[in-house]
Simulated scan of single mutants.
Amino acid sequence: MSLPFFDGHNDVLLRLLRAGASDGAARFLDGTPDTQLDLPRARRAGFAGGLFAMFAPSPEHYDFEDYQSDKGYSVPMPPPLAPELAQDATLKMVGVAEEIEAMSSGGVRICRQSEEIRDCVDRGQLAMVLHIEGADCIDAEFRFLDVLYARGLRSIGLVWSRDNIFGHGVPFQFPASPDMGAGLTEQGKALVSECDRRGIMIDLSHLNEKGFWDVAGVSSRPLVATHSNAHRLCASPRNLTDRQLRAIADTGGVVGVNFAPCFLAANGLLESGVPLEQVLAHIRYLANHLGEDGVTLGSDFDGVMMPDEIGDVLGVPKIFAALERGGWSSRSIEKFALGNWMRVLRQTIG
């Protein structure tokens, strides 16, 4: 029996949408080689649920590999996305999620509260928590937030790396500090307060450092970075400084370890040969700064290249086995796999 785990970030809904096929939901349920995550592999791996991201892509596209060298990289960021484009893409991804749930014969469930996630784990159902990566689709009056909340949205990353009306993201650069750009706008601070009121978790991944501290100053909930790593080990601005880690620890928050090689490796390159040991190094570093209650999973499946030793969702049990060999107790590994996410989701979405 695989150890059940909850994961803080995947982009499978966008991957299915981009494939352009009308049977995306069926392909997820039956299994497809086009993704790193589907229901058959999830069951084999112990994937009990996760935050299913809805990211609205820009018309402009820049290939990461075109901008990296042995000295690092600096990828151009697209301009702010038109709200109508973001809303259209987001609604399509919500539709894919709802179709997966409807066609799953009870095997998949969109969850709105932590108790529903726990019930899914107990029943062997896959728990989907809907998340938007970049609030580009949300209007200043939060009318579209009402629409998404009613359909199950329970987690928001205020920005992807491009800017929007709520705040400023960090670009894909290396090496670089997350301390770049202005903080949240007044609309961004209002959105944080509104999410606290409703029980929508705020995700700090992709947000710049000033925005991070603005969220910390407004929100009364635990600070959460769903898919980020340690800046000290990999100097990407997408990763968190020691000072940020202390703030997350002080609120009882969590960091989901991101498997993307460019956020793991000391050289910051997007190369699949980065060893599993580098994932473990970030886990150990984060545990030293957050405690064992503050570290969990944030894979980024279907959003980026995976290390060869992980490959797809079936590679996650290798991490648990390596932690056990490294002396982690069964109780600590269970917290890392599931317990820490369950606690924080209970404190944020209810």
Rank of each mutant, 00 (worst) to 15 (best):
L3G: 04
P4R: 02
D7E: 10
D11F: 00
S22P: 05
D23R: 12
A25P: 12
F28I: 04
F28P: 04
F28V: 05
G31E: 08
P40C: 08
R41I: 04
R41N: 06
A42L: 11
A42G: 06
A42Q: 06
F47S: 03
A48F: 12
G49V: 08
G49S: 06
F52M: 08
M54E: 00
D66S: 11
S69D: 12
D70S: 15
K71H: 12
K71L: 15
K71I: 08
Y73C: 03
S74C: 07
P78H: 04
E84Q: 05
E84V: 00
A86D: 00
Q87R: 10
D88W: 01
T90C: 00
T90E: 00
G95D: 00
V96D: 00
I100H: 08
M103I: 13
S104Y: 02
G106A: 04
G106Q: 08
G107L: 03
V108I: 04
R109W: 04
C111S: 14
R112H: 03
E115K: 13
E116T: 12
I117S: 10
C120G: 07
D122Y: 01
M128K: 07
L130I: 02
I138N: 01
I138C: 01
D139Q: 07
A140Y: 01
E141R: 11
A150H: 09
S155V: 15
I156W: 00
G157V: 09
S161M: 11
S161K: 03
R162M: 12
H168Q: 11
G169F: 01
F172E: 08
D179Q: 06
G181N: 06
L184I: 14
G188R: 01
K189Y: 06
K189I: 15
L191T: 13
V192G: 10
C195N: 09
C195R: 08
R198L: 07
I202M: 10
I202T: 10
L204V: 09
K210I: 02
F212K: 06
W213K: 08
D214Q: 09
V215G: 05
V215D: 03
A216H: 14
A230K: 07
H231K: 00
L233C: 03
A235P: 01
N239L: 05
Q244L: 11
Q244D: 13
Q244R: 03
G253F: 13
V255I: 13
V257N: 03
A260P: 04
A260F: 15
A266I: 05
L269A: 13
L270W: 11
E271H: 15
G273R: 13
L276Q: 10
L280S: 03
R284P: 06
H289G: 12
H289V: 02
D293C: 10
V295T: 07
T296V: 08
T296F: 01
S299Q: 13
D300W: 11
F301R: 06
K318M: 12
R325N: 15
S329Y: 02
S330H: 05
R331T: 05
S332N: 11
E334H: 12
K335N: 04
A337M: 06
W341P: 11
M342T: 12
R346P: 02
Q347S: 15
I349R: 09
G350V: 10
